[in-house]
Design a binder for these strands. Structure first.
Length: 414
RNA sequence: GUGGUUGUAGCUCAGUUGGUUAGAGCGCCUGGUUGUGGUCCAGGAGGCCGGGGGUUCAAAUCCCCUCAGCCACCCCA
């Protein structure tokens, strides 16, 4: 078995799993469309630089979770660990700046080299929404409303909590960052190894540390909210007002910082208790500096991503495939008639099944296993009369029906 | 990357202090039915006991290594 195992952290998605995945992605796509978000796809791999520059050299994703490789031409490539960087790249390379604002829906596989566990795989799928070119809080209110709408439509609204925080604008963040680093420098001997590494690149992440020693240091650290300028405060308040107007409940979590460097202002996360250690179901925030940092025109952006597998674990069992009508020939002579009949029914919109072999008994058995609603039986008797015997697979009741009237008779099973 | 735990038939699981040919239920196949499914009855197929190495007269069982799942840490969707 070991040689035929799928690669660690990857999974085959069999039909039953696919039903759940489809339920998630289709629901999201349809509702996003009502908000004016159209689907785009970017490649599943990019030049490694795209992710290194945007996610931050010291982020966990870049330092230990990327699937990177060199192609035959010597290019350094990386399987995308998230899609925002790819969308930003597409925005720049496609010269889309003149079409702002832009609303995108995305969906597809992501890759992270992590230790797998429940709700966590090395290849997983995300649905994703990006809104580019709007710098006001209305943008954030819209994408959060859209997220809440989708979660509600999936029937998981009561299993999740919306957590919210603000990181402030660049100015506030810079001044706070300076203060924080100044404070933390004094405790270098007490900080954990991880936090020391973050000190010069992403000090805000230290606030989110769960290390005991770090927590003691953080307890007395300067607070981000004390360094917010008026514009940042107003932004955060406006978003909250908007959410209240939209009837969306939330709670503020001051330690919510997010792992990626490019966020500013809003950071939010829909969390759940139902997925074991995996709390985050849908998360995102604002990334105003991202596109400019990549070399594009200064363009504000905000968006979120959600884990398809995680949502699939949370939703109720979606309905199975439509129950078919089984066409059952008896004997050689009837097979040609059955073949044309089954096609006729399919073109008329029925789900119809024609077995590949077997006598009447075997085919009825097959029809039963396929959960057929009815069997259309054609033998020599029926051929002679230009009719078929329609057997109701629920009641066992049989009716002789003229071939010309078949669709009408079967209409009840649609 | 670290720690814990599990791995026996397609699925869920038994398998005693190491002892002949590794079992059960469900599922699958065949027959009881030459034109009637589900239920029932009879029969059958299906196992490198995750993989490799070791201990032993003898290993599914004990030891080591390894792979994978799950759980937790870390981090995240």
């Amino acid at each position: 078995m070991s040689d035929l195992q799928p690669v660690r952290g990857t999974h085959d998605i069999l039909p039953e799993d696919h039903r759940r995945h489809r339920q998630v992605t289709e629901t999201a796509r349809q509702i996003a469309a009502r908000y004016g978000y159209e689907e785009i796809s970017t490649p599943v791999f990019e030049f490694s630089e795209v992710f290194k520059r945007t996610l931050g050299e010291t982020s966990d994703i870049v330092t230990k979770e990327m699937f990177s490789f060199e192609d035959r031409g010597g290019e350094q490539l990386t399987l995308r660990p998230e899609v925002t960087a790819g969308v930003a790249r597409a925005f720049i390379s496609g010269g889309l700046a003149q079409h702002l604002p832009l609303k995108f829906f995305c969906q597809g596989p992501m890759f992270r080299y992590e230790r797998p566990q429940k709700g966590r795989q090395r290849q997983f799928h995300q649905i994703d929404v990006e809104l580019l070119g709007v710098d006001g809080p209305l943008a954030d209110i819209e994408i959060i409303s859209l997220a809440a709408h989708i979660l509600d439509a999936l029937g998981v609204a009561d299993k999740v909590t919306l957590e919210l925080n603000t990181l402030g604008d660049t100015e506030s963040r810079q001044s706070y960052r300076t203060k924080l680093v100044g404070y933390l420098e004094g405790f270098k001997d007490k900080l954990s190894e991880d936090s020391l590494a973050r000190l010069d690149r992403n000090p805000l992440r230290i606030l989110d540390s769960k290390d005991q020693g770090d927590r003691a240091v953080i307890a007395d650290a300067p607070l981000l909210e004390d360094h917010m300028n008026d514009a940042s405060k107003a932004f955060f308040e406006d978003v909250q007002k908007g959410l209240k107007t939209a009837g969306i409940e939330y709670k503020i979590n001051p330690t919510l910082v997010r792992g990626l460097d490019y966020y500013c202002h809003m950071a939010f996360e829909f969390t759940t208790e139902t997925l074991g250690a995996q709390g985050a179901v849908l998360a995102g925030g604002r990334y105003d500096g991202l596109i400019e940092a990549m070399g594009g025109p200064p363009t504000p952006g905000t968006g979120w991503a959600a884990g398809v597998e995680r949502l699939a674990l949370m939703i109720a069992e979606p309905p199975g495939p439509a129950r078919p009508v089984a066409v059952v020939p008896i004997g050689q002579a009837a097979e040609a008639e059955a073949l044309s009949l089954v096609q006729r029914l399919r073109r008329a919109g029925f789900t119809a099944d024609l077995g590949f072999s077997g006598n009447l008994q075997k085919r009825l058995k097959g029809a039963n296993k396929a959960n057929a609603v009815a069997a259309v039986i054609i033998g020599e008797d029926e051929l002679a009369k230009g009719a078929a015997t329609v057997r109701d697979m629920e009641t066992g009741e049989q009716t002789e029906v003229k071939l010309s009237a078949l669709e009408d008779h079967l209409a009840r099973y649609r």
